[in-house]
Amino acid sequence: MSRLALSLRINGETHEVLTAPHRTLLDVLRDDLGLTGTKENCLEAECGVCTVLLDGRAVNACILLAAQCAGREVVTIEGLARGAELHPLQRAFVEHGAVQCGYCIPGMLLAAKAYLDEDGAPTEDGIREALAGNLCRCTGYQKIADAVLAAAAALRGSRAGGGGCTHP
């Protein structure tokens, strides 16, 4: 079987990967690179647990061939915090009790980040629509929506106070 040599940019680092053409970004992240924060579940782009950012946009890593990601910027949950400093979304999820079993949370956080990068002053309806592709079986979504609203406010505050400085 043929193999492809891919250069993947993940969380700002370049990884050289040799892989079969059919393997997805999700396969390579979890099995080749040990980045298991990106979860695996439905494998049909229905549940959102495998959500990552590709060139800043939320996508389902389970239906994206790794080969399609060569030369593009991928951000996984491992790339969201800055060192020990949690991203404002992560802090808000902790503070609002938005996490129960946690399995859907990496995908929730990245889908929420992509949305807040587009719309810094969202409504709750907008947040619920932006997270419609991410299923959670524990929380009932209210605390997640509350956390994203709070994070949006915190991000606006840090932007206003920081002279245009934005969190990556």
Binding site: T51, R57, A58, V59, N60, A111
Partner: peptide
Amino acid sequence: VGGHQIRNV
């Protein structure tokens, strides 16, 4: 059509 993740691609 789907969620944002689907519509993005």
